[in-house]
Design a protein around this nucleic acid. Sequence first.
DNA 1: CGACGTCTTGAGACACATCAACAAACGTGG
DNA 2: CCACGTTTGTTGATGTGTCTCAAGACGTCG
Lengths: 241, 241
Amino acid sequence: MLIRTPVAENGTRCSTCALGQICLPVGIAAEDATRMDALVSERVRIPRGKLLYRQGDPLTTVYGVRFGTLKTVLTLQDGRSQITGFHLPGEIVGLDGLGKMAHVSDAIALEDSEACVLRFDELQELARELPSLQIQIMRLMSNEISRDHDMLVMLGAMRAEERLAAFLLNLSQRMSTRGYSATEFLLRMSREEIGSYLGLKLETVSRLFSRFAESGFIQVKQRQVKLVDMDALRQLVGSRC
Amino acid sequence: MLIRTPVAENGTRCSTCALGQICLPVGIAAEDATRMDALVSERVRIPRGKLLYRQGDPLTTVYGVRFGTLKTVLTLQDGRSQITGFHLPGEIVGLDGLGKMAHVSDAIALEDSEACVLRFDELQELARELPSLQIQIMRLMSNEISRDHDMLVMLGAMRAEERLAAFLLNLSQRMSTRGYSATEFLLRMSREEIGSYLGLKLETVSRLFSRFAESGFIQVKQRQVKLVDMDALRQLVGSRC
DNA sequence: CGACGTCTTGAGACACATCAACAAACGTGG
DNA sequence: CCACGTTTGTTGATGTGTCTCAAGACGTCG
């Protein structure tokens, strides 16, 4: 259904990828990185709104986001759903399903996106030979656990205002790591999706945007946001995250 | 501060541990499991209320709970805190700090407990030689991510009643895997701790217990609970988790 | 026995949800 | 390019689930 394209002989792979300092190759020596190139033999394009994988699908591959943005969504039987993450270039998605060898969430593109396909068995195999890769995989998973715990704090202990401020600051930080402006960016997700992620309703999110704008913390025009007073936002959060 | 005891030459180790089918050795062949014995050269006792590790501590070891119950807590600068997990025997704690090589939460004993000390570098080393151990570590981490996502759904999309029902069912299931009764058990945590975990106040938790008891779903006497009508609880949750 | 921590229960407050109307932006096909 | 329907976002009025504050009961342990 999705278009899978083999990577050209001389195409960009891990060892030459611009995301090298964010993605899987972090901390891996140049000579080892070339061995990782064999991992990425194909990529998938995911048009906006389409699913990369679906809850329950057998898991044989995980994915590295190459460009675009994905969301991962967990759906309850009664139809209620929760977005568990927004995924930017350089992030690995699908790791949550490794334990069951089946995907436990849906992954959906928020804009036209592309992902590197990583066969899990090959990844496993190579990790055995490259200790630094093994460490990096564990580090990535550990960081995801740690991020999830931060989210638990947000949902469990913060008020709506604090959650949105933390969300904006977190996004800002991630955009900036990827070479984009830390203060001005385009939200790829709707108010409803932000709400789902933060455990709020879209109306609440919308009101908060308006309130933040009135207070002069941010400027908003549709999905284009500009963080004007990051310190004020930080003060709202009061702390880490 | 905590008492660390070397494991006796002929003491119980991984290959002979009763928790073998829950803990690290899952899926590892008998002859390989004996090699894991070398990993567990000491154990720690954590008396009730004491910390096993603290947010910010450098991470050189992770821990396998041997008996007792631990909670992991994330604290914000303003003092608010969130319990990110309750940990029963056979569970590995500390994995969330691997990425930063420092602990990102406090681990505190809810009752007198004991944990196996696993040096991370040794674990890493052995995982390289035993592919099945490498897989098992990844599986454990993946399961933790997946559990955290389930928690996100609870905190983001469920009402108080549903959260408590899901909590009780989850605890029931975990007790039963460990050979305890699935319907009758002692809560090792206070109402306030349950509340912190579920993103609720202790009064709300207390009221819900009373309400569930009135409805005949459960019987409660202090921390002793008996699940009388599990189907009713499942219906409350309406779904998975 | 008294002192302390834990739990229960009630009354009232408040943050966020719900319901509803409208406005703005977007996409599509003529 | 415009007209149209659809999706997405804004804002207001009202409702409600959970929190807050408070008092008292229970259980535990010195």
